[in-house]
Amino acid sequence: MLPIFRLSRLLYRLRIPCLPWLLKVLNRVLFSVSLPPSVRVGRNVTFGYQGLGIVVHRHAVIGSNVIVAPNVVIGGRGRAGAPVIEDDVLIGAGACVLGPVTIGRGARIGANAVVMVDVPAGATAVGVPARILRASRARKPASG
């Protein structure tokens, strides 16, 4: 799935007409993923189950070392702007990240969460609509 996307992205950047979009359709048919060649995807990105059911907005940006579980939507909300997913983010199964939001480095999005606001770095977002939980700090062991 990602090799087909990477080839379509290269052809898109070289401004070769039609072929990038045909490769997008091939990915859609083979893997049930909608990943347009205009999306910027970093290194070591993992799409769960070869991208099964994942839909990504054509202007979205996905950083490096991101894990996207199946049935995730990274999309718009009917106005200008698309999500920006920074590095080291985990997006749980069935989550929706909608609109011009930024998901900060190291953030976690819970399964089936609907995120429509920015998520700070290291935070966790859960629920519908998603609420932001701060990253828990490790407690010091009790001296004894």
Rank of each mutant, 00 (worst) to 15 (best):
P37E: 01
M1V: 14
G42S: 13
G92R: 14
R6Q: 10
V115C: 06
G81S: 07
M116S: 08
R58E: 13
G76R: 05
I85Y: 04
G92S: 06
M116N: 08
W21Y: 14
N27C: 14
S38M: 01
R58I: 00
S38F: 00
L7F: 02
V56K: 01
G53S: 04
W21A: 00
D87A: 11
I4C: 02
L26R: 03
V119L: 14
D118R: 05
A93R: 10
A80I: 11
T46D: 09
P120D: 02
P120Q: 04
L26T: 03
P17T: 01
L133K: 13
P129W: 11
H57E: 08
V119N: 05
E86M: 15
G75F: 07
A107G: 04
L90G: 08
I54E: 08
P36F: 01
L19Q: 00
G122P: 05
L14H: 00
V89S: 07
M1A: 14
T46L: 15
R9F: 11
L98E: 06
F31D: 01
V66Q: 02
S38E: 05
G51E: 02
L7E: 00
V39L: 02
R28S: 08
V61N: 01
V84L: 09
P120E: 01
N71Y: 12
S64K: 06
N71D: 10
A107I: 08
W21S: 01
R40T: 15
V115Q: 07
A142I: 10
D118N: 15
V55E: 04
I103C: 07
L98K: 04
P70Q: 12
T102N: 09
S143E: 12
P36K: 01
L7S: 04
I62E: 02
G78C: 12
V72E: 09
V126W: 12
S38N: 04
I4W: 00
I109N: 07
P20C: 09
S64R: 12
L2F: 12
G78P: 04
T102D: 06
A125C: 06
L10N: 02
C96G: 08
V61I: 14
G144F: 15
A138C: 09
V45W: 08
V101P: 10
G48C: 09
A82K: 03
V66H: 03
G51Y: 05
I67E: 06
